[in-house]
Write a protein that binds this DNA or RNA. Structure first.
Lengths: 177, 177
DNA sequence: GCACAATACCTCGATGCCGATGTATAGCGG
DNA sequence: CCGCTATACATCGGCATCGAGGTATTGTGC
């Protein structure tokens, strides 16, 4: 998820670590902050893997900056990760949102639609958080107001997302003709 | 989050690892599956910390079962974690839902309300996923249909949760008088 | 003139999680 | 009677993440 965000932001323009950090904080920081000590090693990993290159520049106000640029392999890798995400990226809303934030970088509408369809399939399978044996429980069947809240909120999210997915899929398919 | 779920499920009744695993899979597994190799060490951690005790029983159909029971410290610890959650448990929907699933175990309505109010405060602070400098961007201002989706879905979730929070807080306060 | 915040990057140890793999038993279909 | 699945628990190496701490410079408030 973090690596996806790094690749995604750098796809648009070279950035140095500190700015990248602020971009990532804006994207996911309110929900799941990323520590500095996670970001810098992640950058190193991607550099070591040949996905990005760094050039040192004198710092504008402080220490010298390391400007990070995606290599061609890095650009390919982002497109690969967007087109063929792991199941966790599909099911976990946090990761899914990160993926959505960069899905436009996949320039084939059919490939974008394929990814959205995977999320659609996931949302369409019946699943609850609470069960009576194997039977998923509905909000109305729960006494516990907090568990009822979980289901109420999840249902609202699901409804909104399904509507958006179907809408967006329609317009993506419209592009292909 | 995993430890919270273990404590939460065992608070109601002693369970052995395998059943606990299925409970956890039902609760969060569709979004974020928990590996066996994560669960068993987690149980050991909690046992070592004196939060739960195990007694061996002959297996119903297979290997002997380890029935897990919360100790008094374990019960206290759950209540402590519910009453005073970390910021991540408040902000990350996955963790928040896990917390909500067991919040009823906190039997003081005022303490429950205090936790809900923390989530309320978090949801009320203006935050977006995308910014123009420091200004949060609204869905309507985005060209990218995928980013627009993120904001649309997040807004729907937020709306539903705010309504539920205010409702539930009202009825929790009603109890106190 | 001095503390402090912001910029800018880094290391280190601890820890939690994962995938792969192992061990054993019971039941079922072919 | 053989393989498969489900039950039931466990270990191990690898790795991502975190918090704490470190280094250095520039601008701001008092």
């Amino acid at each position: 998820m973090l690596e996806l965000a790094i690749l995604g932001f750098l796809y648009d323009a070279p950035l140095h670590g500190y700015v990248l950090r602020r971009h990532i904080a804006a994207l996911t920081g309110h929900v799941r902050p990323v520590a500095e000590s996670t970001l810098y090693p992640a950058i190193k990993r991607l550099e070591k893997a040949g996905l990005l290159a760094r050039t040192t520049e004198p710092g504008a106000v402080a220490a010298p900056r390391h400007v990070l640029t995606l290599t061609e392999e890095g650009r390919q890798e982002l497109r690969r990760r967007l087109a063929d995400p792991g199941q966790r990226e599909i099911t976990d809303e946090n990761q899914w949102f990160t993926l959505l934030a960069f899905l436009r970088h996949l320039d084939d509408p059919a490939a974008q639609a394929a990814v959205l369809r995977r999320r659609l399939a996931f949302l369409e399978e019946p699943a609850s958080f609470f069960y009576d044996g194997d039977r998923p429980l509905r909000a109305e069947e729960l006494d516990d107001p907090f568990r009822r809240g979980v289901l109420t909120i999840a249902r609202a999210t699901s409804r909104a997302e399904l509507a958006w997915l179907r809408d967006t899929l329609r317009s993506l398919e419209g592009v292909g003709r």
